[in-house]
């Protein structure tokens, strides 16, 4: 399956990446599994994606890391929001 992954703010800076389009194994079915997979890219990735304040969204909705992912989804990782 193909998914798009976006990174914002501190997380974007830490992994030096704004966006990825990934072809994933069908067995990789949750955000948590995706984080573990991305963590294999290096220490900076592992550290950024294991931060206790990390927020994750699937298709622009904030979710827990146990949330499922499927073909065509857009997943995003970012720190707590500071709008207004």
């Amino acid at each position: 399956m193909t998914i798009t992954v976006k990174f914002f703010s501190l997380i974007r800076e830490a992994v030096e990446t704004e966006q990825l389009v990934l072809e994933l194994n069908e067995k990789l079915t949750t955000v948590e599994a995706l984080k573990n997979e991305l963590g294999l890219r290096g220490e900076a990735w592992k550290e950024a994606l294991s931060h206790p304040n990390l927020i994750q969204a699937v298709n622009q909705r904030v979710v827990f890391q146990e949330e499922g992912i499927s073909d065509g989804d857009e997943v995003a990782f970012f720190p707590p929001m500071t709008g207004g």
């Binding site: 914002f8 970012f78 720190p79 707590p80 929001m81 500071t82 709008g83 207004g84």
Partner: peptide, 30 residues
Amino acid sequence: VMDTLKTDAPFWKREHSGDEGQWVTVKAVD
């Protein structure tokens, strides 16, 4: 709307002073 969007809408502030820049963290009052 204002109280909720401060913490729930995906915006991230980075303040600059001189050559220094730093990401703003969520305030307890917010």
